[in-house]
């Protein structure tokens, strides 16, 4: 316990890094998710096909494989491109950027399905009603689709976020100083790995537990007008 207090700043810094990484990758995932859902539901064959390839590919390969591929392969690729075109010199991609981008793109595929399902759950009659009133596409999206989509997407959203938060732990493998990495190094240098890993375990549990509570409150708020069986 004394050791945990002694190393508390390292643990806190790691926790903050984990939270930051999760939030940044969430923002990226939301953008990819919305784009993906839009592409999958559009009438454009090419867009549908591309979105299909994206979700299938990303979900067929484990997260860590992609993280390592982007971090090590991406580094080489960017530098070879820079060398070949002469546009930029040697670039070091940051662990944070590589991790956030990869996890964001991966979870974008899951959010694509969440958003697609949520949009499809909206009765088509409502959208037709919007069209017949002369509403433009953007207006239909803002006034009819978006407010309901949020509610339908919330359970899937909660799930994705919790999985994503836990997935960020993998970024410690490429050496980003997140909660796992910091707990591990502190545990290794003091010879008390169990104590420190247990501390990380409890912190993750608090993070997921808090998110769970927050989303439950949101869910109550957004489904206020709904009668549940």
């Amino acid at each position: 316990m004394d050791l945990l207090l002694e190393y508390h700043s390292q643990l806190l810094a790691g926790t903050w890094m984990t939270v930051k990484l999760a939030l940044v990758s969430l923002a990226i995932a939301l953008v990819f998710g919305l784009l993906g859902a839009w592409a999958k539901l559009s009438k454009n064959r090419l867009a549908q096909r591309l979105a299909g390839i994206y979700t299938t590919l990303v979900r067929g390969v484990p997260d860590l494989v992609l993280i390592l591929l982007v971090f090590f392969g991406g580094q080489v690729m960017i530098n070879e491109l820079g060398y070949a075109t002469g546009l930029w010199g040697y670039v070091d991609i940051s662990k944070f950027a590589a991790g956030a981008a990869t996890i964001g793109v991966i979870f974008g595929a899951y959010f694509t399905e969440t958003f697609r399902g949520a949009i499809m759950a909206i009765p088509p009659g409502q959208i037709e009603a919007g069209v017949s009133c002369g509403m433009r596409k953007s207006l239909i999206f803002r006034h009819i689709i978006w407010p309901q989509m949020v509610r339908y997407a919330l359970p899937g959203f909660t799930n994705n976020w919790l999985v994503q938060l836990k997935t960020t732990a993998l970024v410690s493998v490429i050496g980003l100083q997140d909660l796992v990495y910091n707990a591990f190094t502190a545990g290794r240098s003091t010879g008390q790995l169990f104590t420190f890993m247990a501390a990380a375990f409890v912190i993750y549990l608090m993070l997921t537990g808090l998110s769970d509570l927050a989303f439950r409150a949101l869910d109550r708020r957004y489904s206020r007008g709904v009668v549940r069986a």
Binding site: K166, L170, V180, F194, T195, M197, F201
Partner: peptide, 22 residues
Amino acid sequence: YVFRGTPLLVQTYLIYYGLGQF
């Protein structure tokens, strides 16, 4: 709840690296 609320990586480390502490 506990096992679904924490990363598999941490669970694995806790068992593989952690238990040897005792």
